[in-house]
Amino acid sequence: MKMRVNKLAAAGTVFIALIAVFAIFAPLIASHDPAGMDTRSVLSPPSREHIFGTDPLGRDVFSRVLYGSRISLSIGIIAVGLSVLTGIFFGSIAGYYGGKIDYAIMRLVDIMLCFPTFFLILAVIAMLEPSIYNIMAVIGLTSWMGVARLVRSEILTLKERDFVAASRIMGAGGSWIIIRHLIPNAIGPVLVNATLGVGGAILIESALSFLGIGVQPPTASWGNILMDGKATLGVAWWVTVFPGAFIFFTVLAYNLLGEGLRDAFEPRLKDRS
């Protein structure tokens, strides 16, 4: 695989693995209770006791960032998983069966794409209660259209290949061919798209939480730690900068990994650049 050569993608993978370890072992790594307030040390700068400092309520920012990574990563990954599954479902049916079914599904996609996604999410969250699960579902169900188009276009070319005809002659039905042959062959670009999508989903979650309609306090997510720090940004940079840096580098890492995967799956693209 070309991945091995791509240093940036490798760096991204290492960083993602590191964040994943942080998230999984947060209770072991965290130095403090992420919700535990310490009124004696409010807004204390980074020190040996609090390596990322404390926030306006005296909570340890490092521990909150660790616990926040659990929320942010799981929302990112599950939301993208949901959008990929939905996209593959609609895209493969549209691509394989074609005709009126294709027309109906692609117009649904067009309609969904007309909504300004972020405001749609805002409106839906305003109506539902802003729980983690609702956020996952809403992000996932408003971002599947790209995947659907991608899968459809892949399947339109794949279904003309001889192995599909061979499979039909062997007696396989539509769903068998889609699941066993078409989706496995189309999965490369979808994986690239999904990896890039995780970064986007993490950003949307952070934005929602920053606006106060995402993950609700006291649960920490990267977005609402940012919000905790915004009032005191002038005096306590650490409350905002550390979670901000985590968001930045995580999204960057996912994008680098996505680009690396793209180069690996489509070697021709890399030669051109």
Partner: peptide, 13 residues
């Protein structure tokens, strides 16, 4: 059952 002309593309890669 049927055997095709083009064996190269009749197998799923």
């Amino acid at each position: 059952s049927m055997v095709f002309q083009e064996p190269g593309s009749a197998l799923d890669p």
